[in-house]
């Protein structure tokens, strides 16, 4: 039991921190520009594929640096020459723009790298187990992912709260016009935030690529979870995104490890339910089996009972 708790916690925090690398950019972009970027997870996927491609030529480590930079530049260009023009036609146009972009990226990735997963490998230097606890090993690469994402989180925190640029970003979250009249180039700040947000998503892709599966569907499968994180945390709230990332990460990892079904719970209360009872398989489904829908259940409940999320200050 203790083993389960320790490993699920580690994996949950790890998954949550990865989610945060993506959600932080998404929520900042939403607060500043009012646009929900449907293509955000696509930049995560691009990061993984770029990282993979670079790793084949010059190794994993250069890819860790170069891929996020490349994707960041692509993101900045998308903001400057795409979104900024579309912005004049309102938020719906922007939303549809990012929606289309997500499909374009997916198709392009399939054309270049094919439909089946690519063989993106963990770097040799990290291909060992970090520690063994109760006969279960924890891979060093996972430890690296965890430390890396915590490091980025702390870096982001310092950048936002301790630097001048960070203050400008914080102020522009709520009052972009006023920030402009004080002499700060707000459009440039928007472009940088968009670029850095995309770069962070790509970084998550590079480090998650070898551990998870690098395939064309990775964006479409992660994207919806990101929106759950951002809505549950509160649109535009960075601390909310952090809490929600960890929450979703932990819920998902713990849920997968639990083999309890409703029938088991009812059995404790003296009620016997079988597959033949009314409701059928519903009673037999274990928490692990329904794990994928738990985040969406949370999304729906938050929207009904707390529309501004855990820490947000505006309605979704």
């Amino acid at each position: 039991m203790l083993e389960l708790v320790v490993f699920s916690s580690l994996n949950g925090v790890l998954y949550g921190m990865l989610l945060f690398l993506l959600a932080s950019g998404l929520t900042l972009i939403f607060s500043m520009m009012g646009v929900l970027n449907f293509a955000h997870a696509s930049f995560y996927m691009l990061g993984a594929y770029f990282g993979f491609q670079i790793s084949r030529y010059i190794g994993f480590w250069p890819g860790l640096v170069v891929a996020p930079l490349l994707v960041g530049v692509i993101g900045a260009l998308v903001e400057r020459y795409g979104l900024r023009t579309v912005h004049k036609h309102g938020h719906v146009a922007e939303l549809l723009f990012t929606f289309g972009l997500a499909f374009i990226v997916e198709e392009l990735v399939q054309m270049v790298w094919g439909k089946i997963p690519v063989d993106y490998r963990i770097p040799g230097a990290l291909n060992f187990s970090a520690f063994t606890l109760f006969d279960t090993t924890f891979p060093a690469y996972r430890m690296f992912m965890l430390l890396m994402s915590i490091g980025i989180f702390l870096g982001l925190l310092v950048l936002l709260t301790r630097t001048r640029v960070g203050l400008i970003i914080q102020a522009a979250l709520t009052h972009p016009n006023i920030v402009g009249t004080l002499g700060h180039n707000v459009p440039l700040v928007f472009m940088m935030v968009f670029g850095v947000g995309c770069g962070l998503a790509a970084l998550a892709g590079v480090i998650a690529g070898p551990a998870l599966v690098t395939q064309p569907a990775m964006a479409a499968s992660l994207g919806p979870i990101l929106f759950v994180v951002v809505v549950v945390g509160g649109l535009g709230s960075l601390s909310g995104a952090f809490v929600a990332s960890l929450l979703i990460g932990l819920i998902q990892t713990f849920a997968v490890a639990l083999n309890i079904s409703l029938a088991d719970v009812m059995a404790h209360l003296g009620v016997t339910l079988t597959r033949e009872s009314f409701g059928g398989d519903l009673w037999m489904a274990t928490v692990a089996q329904v794990a994928p829908i738990i985040p969406y259940l949370l999304l729906v409940l938050v929207l009904i009972f707390r529309p501004h999320g855990l820490m947000g200050n505006r309605d979704t």
């Binding site: 001048r164 914080q170 709520t174 009052h175 006023i178 004080l182 002499g183 700060h184």
Partner: peptide
Amino acid sequence: DIFPGLTVRENLILGMKS
């Protein structure tokens, strides 16, 4: 229209240009 989440000092710092 002050920046409500920032301190008085930070608000003043943002008044200065780069």
